[in-house]
Design a protein around this nucleic acid. Structure first.
Lengths: 338, 338
DNA sequence: TGGCTCAATGTAAGCGCTTACATTTTCAAT
DNA sequence: ATTGAAAATGTAAGCGCTTACATTGAGCCA
């Protein structure tokens, strides 16, 4: 059998006895075609199961009406949620979304960015700002508008739509101190290549030193965002020097891992040790005890990012938006046993 | 300022003083170009920040080397996991993945399928088989290979890569009966348009009737996959007629919701009531008590789906693959208080 | 040196669409 | 009927790439 060829505009035109221009118009601006003609054409379109070729369309029209996003992973609820809102906003404006994930790898991220641009996306959503300068230059050279989400730094050179991870982590550390803790550990995410994790760790560190906690009374372990890894990190911490009375975690997944392991080791939370999280995902309400954490407006962030991107597309100079976070107290943080 | 134009193959060719064919070859089969030429070309490519236009490429080469997937939502760990494995397998074979989500809406799913095909995907991954016949006809007409994942039914007309939801649910219900329960309720997912949810409910129903449980001793409530909704469903169940001693849930999220609400209502699990889940996602190990659930090999399913799709692309007749599941006992299921 | 082969490069024909512009049709007003 | 403007449709030039085929160049042998 001969290789199958999908029907083309021309096939439709021929069968409907009109020109390709008319068929094209039927599909994109039906109002400009007489009803009788239009009905005949649409009939043929559905008979043939015709679907326009996106590549050809994009090339001829010189725009795609699609926006790209590169996120570290689908496997973290925070991105899933924010992206969902982002996508809803995009769709409501008649555009579509192309998503790629980088697995937290810089080189993969760069590849994905290029791939999305090759596919013709009109604008980009990226997470955080920790990437090679070269990439920003490339984006500038191609005149692709972009926004950086999930973080907010003062740098005037980028458009951020996010929250201040440093400040939020600082606040959480102060809260822990207020509860009376003086020996504190942190399970942080991998900070290399991740400005959010980096800023969270920096915020905690700064808060503790501002409040006179000695270096010896603060230790940090980095680990990947998984329950098991966090459990192992928790054990590592307990096995080193004097036991801290509180463990500040870089996100809720890490906090859940710490709590689970603590319980498995027979240490009660918060009785034996306090634990805090970050992000306020559903998980933090599911573990027992509930995790005291930082609430982040993920959905609002996604929606706002879309708004900003669209205004950038309309040539308005995009400007950063800083969103506020706040601490949600649940049961995992309490004063240390005296 | 004049509208910016991305550099084209021709721009590169001109600047490097070669023909477009040579540039194209440099990029796709570097081996066929003399080293000196190649280096000069690559130099220009990076100077100009050139990235090939995907649409043009696809059109000229008449293939895209990309595979599409339409999943109900990113917001459920089971799809995130399976898709991750799917994507890894795809990448390792040098192709790429385009994902779209349908929010469990039939019409949206159809739209997404068409959009992916318009974008030129060579093959498709779809979830389950409950969709209009018309869509399958369209796929056939366009000669697009596809596999249906996350379920496995005997129908010879489709290629499935999944597990038997009916059978697994049947087994779980039997397990509940073995523990001595005789008054049972089910919190099921929305079965309309969702064959997995439908089969799970059917499996449970069949098992109970096979074992002589009266209709009056079995009730079902459907609800969306969210912790809160499941909690509400749980309350509804408790408020109706005689309290069941066990609640079989359509998935782990529902089970977590039920357990949380039970505890909030002062009912202990499994002391006061037993709860079971389905899927074996991380969540089921995080709640307290851990959820007795059906383990599903999500990653293997994703990987297998990719394998089957590739073999279909090579003209081999694809054949269904049935994966096995098994029950994981944790603490949420125990004999009823006598 | 002539002739031959093979490697390297160039030429140019599309791929399936959109759209500016040209042409034809329609229809109201005379 | 005739006329003219507006509406409907057609014509055809690209959009940026790949690739079959043609051309050129280089190296080798007799």
């Amino acid at each position: 059998m001969e290789k199958f060829q999908p029907p083309t505009l021309e096939d439709v035109a021929r069968k409907a006895a009109v020109s390709t221009a008319t068929v094209s118009r039927c599909l994109s601006r039906p109002g400009t075609v007489r009803q009788a003609t239009r009905e005949r054409v649409m009939q043929v379109v559905s008979e043939l199961g015709y679907t326009p070729n996106f590549g050809a369309q994009a090339m001829a029209a010189r725009r795609t009406n699609t926006i790209g996003a590169v996120i570290p992973t689908m496997d973290n609820a925070i991105f899933a949620k924010g992206l969902q809102a982002f996508q809803e906003e995009i769709s409501s404006r008649g555009a579509s979304l192309l998503v790629a994930s980088s697995s937290y790898k810089k080189d993969l991220e760069e590849k994905q960015i290029r791939a999305l641009i090759a596919r013709g996306v009109d604008a980009l959503l990226l997470i955080g700002d920790d990437r090679d300068e070269e990439i920003y230059e490339y984006l500038a050279k191609r005149h692709i508008p972009y926004v950086l989400a999930w973080n907010h730094r003062k740098a005037a050179s980028h458009t951020y739509v996010g929250f201040d991870n440093f400040q939020a982590a600082y606040a959480m550390a102060e809260r822990v101190l207020q509860h009376g803790h003086r020996r504190i550990a942190m399970i942080a995410g991998i900070t290399e290549g991740n400005d959010r994790a980096f800023d969270r760790r920096a915020g905690v560190r700064k808060a503790l030193s501002d409040h006179g906690i000695a270096d010896a009374d603060f230790s940090v372990v980095e680990c990947v965002y998984s329950i098991d890894a966090a459990g192992d990190a928790f054990e590592t911490i307990l096995g080193t020097g004097r036991r801290p009375t509180a463990v500040i975690c870089g996100n809720d997944v890490l906090a859940a891992g710490a709590i689970l392991r603590a319980k498995a080791m027979g240490i009660s939370v918060p009785g034996g040790i306090s634990v805090t999280g970050f992000d306020d995902i559903e998980l933090s309400t599911v573990v027992d005890p509930g995790v005291t954490t930082v609430h982040v407006p993920h959905r609002r962030m996604g929606k706002t990012a879309a708004t900003v991107l669209f205004s950038a597309l309309k040539n308005r100079q995009p400007k950063s938006r800083k969103l506020e976070t706040h601490i949600i107290e649940r049961q995992s943080l309490a004063p240390p046993a005296s």
